[in-house]
């Protein structure tokens, strides 16, 4: 690993799109320096958030940073992770870790060989309602998990690459992967994946996917995802039922403050959830990653978790194309 000498800890952010706008302020608030490289939007990004400097190439970025935050479109993740690893930089990569499980494994192997840390950005593991639920499940509040449901609904993304399944992996790989990861975190390794998807014809990009997981221990998970029409309020729901209880949450139902101004607001909250009155889960996430990068304890989500999430989503996509339930090889579920 090449080590940069002197100076403040510097994050090299690659990409300047939607998720970069959530990550960059978190890094800044933690006191890191930022350099940003992006094919487009980097000057606007740093201007918008009042921090960071723009560099002109990935090589310049790698020379100038201690760790890389990969915020580019999914299909570029693995290549950039491998470049960062080759330069000896720690890596934080927005989910999905890669477009395919083969690429995800290659990215992990590159980081292992280079001796650098690699963490995927599964931010739902940092949302306080999900954390409260997971901690309670771990503490036995519902007994043995039997049936879980997760639902995630928001406006369809406007950037075209999200809607191109070869680039993003589609709704399952981009959106539902959050809940597929969480379902596995709660109920363990997945044995079987079945999925259906409906993409509405016509000018609307409205689409829904429904994924059913059977875990190795027999627990069942249902994950539904929707990219809805513009203006749709972002909403998550979950229910976890077990042998001794039930936990449920609907983001629509737990609002600490609601103001009725008598005006219909059609703006919605788009692709990313609003998180009022709590610390930004992106900040919680990035603080944990930052701590690990600087020698602290490892974060709650590992590169292997990122790989497994891609593998489950990939099985769901395979189920969509074949119409069959897909069995996952249990040996692949073992942490290497």
């Amino acid at each position: 690993m090449s080590v940069r000498s002197g100076g403040n800890y510097t994050i090299g952010m690659v990409g300047a799109g939607g998720i970069a706008n959530s990550h960059l302020p978190s890094w800044l608030s933690l006191g890191a320096d930022l350099v940003v490289f992006s094919l487009e939007g980097a000057p606007e990004l740093v201007r918008r958030h009042g921090g960071g400097s723009v560099v002109g190439s990935l090589d310049q970025l790698l020379d100038a940073c201690d760790a890389v935050d990969v915020c580019t479109p999914t299909y570029t993740h693995a290549e950039i992770v491998c470049r960062a690893a080759a330069a000896g930089r720690q890596v934080f990569c927005e989910k999905p870790l890669a477009r395919t499980s083969v690429d995800a494994r290659a990215a992990i192997d590159a980081c292992v060989q280079a001796g650098v840390q690699l963490y995927p950005g599964h931010v739902v593991r940092y949302f306080p309602e999900f954390v409260a639920m997971h901690d309670a499940v771990r503490a036995g509040a519902v007994g043995e998990v039997a049936v879980q449901r997760f639902s995630r609904t928001g406006s369809a993304p406007s950037q075209p690459w999200f809607l191109d399944e070869t680039l993003s992996g589609g709704l399952v790989m981009d959106q539902s992967i959050h809940d597929l990861d969480f379902a596995r975190w709660n109920a363990g390794e997945v044995a079987t994946v079945f999925a259906r998807q409906t993409i509405a014809p016509g000018p609307d990009v409205v689409r829904s996917c429904q994924v059913i997981l059977t875990h190795s221990n027999g627990a069942l998970s249902y994950v539904s995802g929707t990219w809805a029409r513009p203006g749709t309020t972002f909403r998550t729901r979950f229910e976890v039922a077990g042998t001794n209880g039930l936990l449920q949450h609907d983001s629509r139902d737990h609002q600490p403050l609601m103001v009725d101004g008598g005006v219909v607001d059609d703006s919605g909250t788009g692709l990313l959830p609003a998180t009022p009155f709590v610390e930004s889960p992106y900040l919680t996430e990035i603080r944990e990653i930052y701590t690990a990068f600087r020698g602290g304890p490892p974060p709650r989500v590992t590169a292997e978790d990122g790989y497994q999430a891609v593998r489950i989503a990939e099985a769901a996509v395979a189920s969509l194309s074949t119409g069959r339930a897909i069995q996952l090889d249990p040996e692949e579920g073992v942490v290497r």
Binding site: A146, I212, L220, T243
Partner: peptide, 20 residues
């Protein structure tokens, strides 16, 4: 497509108690 389990009330009943 359906998948079921007998995790809830296991040992008390023969039939499936969970299902999607």
């Amino acid at each position: 497509y359906a998948t079921t389990n007998k995790i809830m009330h296991a040992g008390k009943v023969e039939v499936e108690t969970g299902g999607l």
